[in-house]
Amino acid sequence: MDVMAVDVRAAIVNPTLGRSLRRRIFNGLGWMLSALTFLLLGAAMLSILILVFVRGAHALNLKVFTHITEGTSGGLLNAIEGTLIISLGGILLAIPPGLAAGIYLAEFNDGFLAPVLRFLSDVLVGVPSIVIGYFVYVTLVVDLGWQFSVAAASIALAIMSLPYICRTSEVALRQVPITLREAGHALGVTTGTVTMRICLPMALPGILTGVLLALSIAVGETAPLIYTAGWSSYLWTGHLTHEPVGYLTYVIWAFITEPFEGAHALAYAAAFLVTFFVLLIGVAARMVLYRNAGAQRHS
């Protein structure tokens, strides 16, 4: 820090012509380069969004929502249904342990379990999704003989979602003022009741944001599903195991390399639906957070 401060001061207190010119160039170039990086990033991203939304919008029609896939044509009803089932299944499985871990980390930070749990959870975020998918494949799909199924796919997505839910609920619970807990304890309320009846309702918007975020990750995932969900052109008949299930991201990946226009159209339609849904959830999650921040400011 010291060196930096001296550098800045030296440049400022001795304003020779050369130095001030150099400063000007340095400033101008700096802003230009940082603007350039942002513009390039924005341009690439707009290109992605335009590709997905323009071509996807052309490919969308009623048939996409009402018909099942036939080979590489038809509609996407089976895939839409499958994506919803396995994502919601994964989230529902992940909420109890994820939330419990978040509560534990926020409320009981004194023992040896909390730091270990936090470290493991943080590392689990970074474990590649394909590793989780392969783990579920060798254990549940092969060893337990569940085969490609809703249950295996949901569990793979649940493991992926766990650390996100854990992290966001811990952060949300930590933002509940400690004085509220103290007030509860002073009234003779047990820790469990304080947590469940006072802290949890206050932290709910934050927790909900985390759940929505995990949902958007689950909807957009492909790698852990390829060898756990498999693929099916038919609607789900309600079996948790021994029945493969279709999902939207598979359509994007597998149909775009087919040599048929119809297959490409389905891939773009699937990309449209997935991206739209993910961005929608992202916006909704932010709105939950902002609205809550606003409400707290007003009260």
Binding site: P96, P97, G98, A100, A101, I103, Y104, L105, E107, F108, L113, V116, L117, L120, S121, V123, L124, V127, V131, I132, Y134, F135, V138, T139, I159, L162, P163, C166, T190, T191, G192, T195
Partner: peptide, 26 residues
């Protein structure tokens, strides 16, 4: 103390899943 004992096993699933992944893949 009761509440803590109650949620500790559920919370541990998050950490255990990483360990289980490594062990079973191994």
């Amino acid at each position: 103390m009761g509440f803590r004992r109650l949620i500790a096993p559920l919370a541990s699933i998050v950490g255990l899943s990483l360990i289980v992944i490594v062990v079973f893949l191994g």
